[in-house]
């Protein structure tokens, strides 16, 4: 786990991300894409302030991992942790599904798991320079042999994800990151609606009054609130700074 806090500036880090992505993608990545990324990296560095140090990484320290929410990278790092958690959850579900799942439900859970995997992979690649690591997952209170328990846990993860992205949006300073977060959050909302409908078919629960208020608006939770709810699923606790 590299600690990149300190002297390395965002510009240098962004450039390093670009170079690593360049290497990783090889010839499949066209010249124009490379140029575009460097433009974005430069814009990102400017947006965040060239003197800002790379504080958003997850740093191992004394049994805790630090999440620094002072810049876009910290927020994306947190998103990466949550997406990884979700991906692991569905992987475990799909590997040994509850016997009482109803027809079609396993495919839905498999689809959602594949989406979460894609989100996590994307975020990991975007944050490559930070060498993020997500602690091992634990699953308190989830009975993987029970349809009801699995669907309820899945619904809670998806609703939390929606509220988390909604609450973090205004913290992002780079427009491209905001747009990508938007591309992800609406898929999380699609998941949440589907899972809610599996739990109570044909009802209003897909966008129920418990999550959508009288203005027709979904929940938005601050990162600290989201972390507090997600913390119990990580074997090592995260320590949040910059909130």
């Amino acid at each position: 786990m590299g600690d990149v806090t300190g002297t390395r500036g965002v510009g240098a880090a962004a450039l390093a991300v670009a170079q690593q992505a360049d290497t990783a993608l090889g010839t499949a990545w066209g010249h124009s894409n490379r140029r575009e990324f460097l433009r974005l990296a430069a814009a990102g560095a400017a947006a965040l302030g060239l003197t800002t140090t790379m504080t958003g990484c997850v740093v191992a320290a004394a049994g805790t991992k630090k999440l620094d929410f002072r810049d876009d990278f910290g927020i994306l790092n947190f998103a990466y942790a949550l997406e990884t958690l979700e991906a692991r959850f569905y992987e475990k579900v799909v590997a040994a599904p509850p016997r009482d799942l109803r027809p079609g439900e396993l495919q839905i859970l498999r689809d959602i798991g594949d989406h979460e995997k894609a989100h996590a992979r994307f975020l990991k690649r975007s944050l490559q320079i930070l060498r993020v690591e997500v602690p091992m997952s634990v699953w308190p209170g989830i009975d993987f042999a029970s349809r009801q328990s699995v669907l309820t846990a899945a619904r809670n993860f998806e609703d939390l994800g929606v509220a988390g992205y909604n609450g973090a949006g205004t913290r992002l300073r780079l427009a491209e990151f905001l747009t990508i977060a938007g591309k992800i959050v609406s898929v999380e909302a699609r998941h949440a609606a589907a899972l809610r409908d599996l739990l109570n078919p044909g009802s209003r629960d897909f966008a129920g009054d418990d999550v959508v208020d009288a203005n027709g608006m979904d929940r938005a939770l601050e990162p600290g609130e989201v972390l507090a709810q997600a913390q119990k699923y990580f074997a090592e606790p995260y320590r949040a700074v910059g909130l």
Partner: peptide, 9 residues
């Protein structure tokens, strides 16, 4: 953003 995710639901 909060309207956006409701449209997705």
């Amino acid at each position: 953003l909060r309207i956006h995710s409701v449209e997705a639901r």
